[in-house]
Design a protein around this nucleic acid. Structure first.
Length: 446
DNA sequence: GTCGTTTGAGCCATCGAATG
DNA sequence: CATTCGATGGCTCAAACGAC
């Protein structure tokens, strides 16, 4: 009995068996799909006759379709070809794994809530205001004169503008001039503020005692992991980052914390209408205190955030905050930011060709363009593969697994994991795109 | 307007179990 | 042994939502 099962198992795990089964199933799936599509239109006609006709159409129709299985088999059986393809493209990249700090009862947590206002969003964003507040109520706030003007949408939100007054570029809040400093000055003042606050908790007399090891300072902002921290690190430079690192400062995000509370139906976040509030700052504040606050001034925002997190109305403990705020090291946030920027650069190369935003039939979706970009490939890499190896090149690189040389812990399960995707629909869409390029190139050039 | 993440629905690859 | 069925978990996508 066992022997028989094992034999069967072994047979099924063989490569040939899997490939054959895969082919058969693919055919079945496309057949049924076609049948269903047909049945929708001509339900009354003889099904058997229709099927016969359909299958003949299918086989001829497949000539224009892309036979992904065949291409994949060609590569799996040809190691040399696979290696030749690999030489043509940049090494595989992937997003750094997230590692969040979890609560340690032996440690003291010092939360510093912070927020920034900027000139716009995205990689171009410059910081115009940096504010922070500690649990003891001490605040820091500084306006910063950006090199560029404040964008239309950002200005609508934060009421900051850059005006020229007496020939001087001047940062204005609500059109009134404010004292602003350079980014470097603001950051250094901020560091001093943080050092001072740390020293309030760990006295300077015991610099090398256990006391030092036990203090964890966490900079928490709302949606900070996505917006504030990357923007801050991108603008600040290595010196600032090193200082934070040496002060053992970490970053946390209150958005996932709030989301987690809402999904756990944390009672204080239930509104009077019985629904739970949304996760944005204004909504949470309104729900807890039934008051509006002057949203989108960095200082007002951090004051509100402090009240939210530490008020008795909210009633959460330190362990909850630590465990659910996705606290990460400065280094981790920095390398994640670098990955995001790297991916974004490559993503842009797909826009307008393989990925057409706001069009009904873009060859690949936004998400897929991001995934390809994140694996280290740009449009020119795919184009190059297409020119040198045709569909084999493109499908081979996207489908076949790829190993990161830096990653020593490649488990057997990774061997089945594609560099980008195994989806036949997506792979054939990419191939079809390059085919149509060739056709249009010939027709336009001749 | 930008950009990134989460969410939930639907599709599809995969694999154990069953069939002839 | 070759094939098929059925359950499941992972992948993909668009929409909604967070930040400015």
């Amino acid at each position: 009995m066992d022997k028989k099962q094992q034999c069967d198992k072994k047979r099924k795990s063989s490569k040939e068996y899997k490939i054959r089964r895969h082919q058969l199933q693919s055919e079945r799936i496309s057949k049924t799909a076609r049948k269903e599509a047909k049945e929708g239109k001509t339900y009354e006609t003889g099904i058997g006759l229709n099927l016969e006709k359909e299958t003949t159409v299918t086989t001829t129709g497949n000539n224009t379709d892309v036979d992904v299985d065949k291409i994949v088999m060609g590569i799996t059986n040809n190691k040399q070809l696979y290696e030749d393809l690999m030489k043509l493209v940049p090494p595989f990249t992937e997003r750094p794994a997230k590692e969040y700090l979890s609560h340690d009862p032996d440690k003291t947590y010092q939360f510093v809530l912070f927020d920034i206002e900027t000139t716009c969003t995205g990689k171009q964003a410059e910081i115009c205001q940096l504010s922070a507040i500690c649990q003891n109520g001490d605040t820091f706030s500084s306006y910063i004169l950006p090199n560029n003007s404040v964008g239309y949408y950002a200005s609508k939100v934060n009421n900051l503008t850059v005006e020229t007054i007496n020939g001087q570029r001047t940062l204005c809040k609500d059109l009134k001039p404010v004292n602003s400093v350079s980014l470097q000055i603001a950051l250094q003042t901020f560091i001093k503020f943080l050092q001072y606050q740390q020293n309030l908790i760990r006295p300077t007399c015991c610099t090398n005692t256990v006391e030092n090891e036990n203090l964890v300072t966490v900079l928490v902002g709302h949606n900070a992991a996505t917006f504030d921290v990357p923007t801050l690190l991108r603008n600040a430079g290595n010196n600032f980052e090193e200082q934070l690192h040496s002060m053992k400062i970490c970053f946390g995000d209150s958005l996932p914390l709030i989301r987690s509370l809402i999904s756990n139906q944390h009672a204080p976040l239930k509104q009077s209408n019985g629904q739970f509030c949304k996760a944005n700052l204004a909504s949470v504040y309104k729900c807890l205190f039934d008051q509006d606050f002057d949203a989108h001034d960095a200082l007002e925002d951090v004051i509100a955030l402090k009240r939210i997190l530490f008020s008795p109305e909210m009633s959460i403990d330190v362990k909850t905050i630590v465990d659910r705020s996705q606290i990460s090291s400065v280094r981790a946030m920095k390398s994640d930011m670098e990955f995001i920027d790297f991916r974004h650069d490559r993503y842009q190369t797909f826009v307008g060709n393989l990925h057409c935003p706001n069009e009904d039939h873009s060859p690949i979706s936004h998400g897929m363009a991001l995934k390809i970009a994140g694996s280290g490939l740009s449009y020119s890499d795919l184009h190059n593969l297409w020119q040198k190896f045709g569909e084999t090149g493109v499908v081979g690189i996207l489908f076949m697994p790829s190993y990161n040389p830096k990653d020593t812990r490649s488990t057997p399960s990774d061997k089945n994991h594609p560099r980008v995707t195994k989806s036949k629909r997506i792979l054939s869409n990419v191939v079809k795109y390059f085919q149509s390029c060739n056709v249009s190139n010939i027709s336009t050039s001749s």
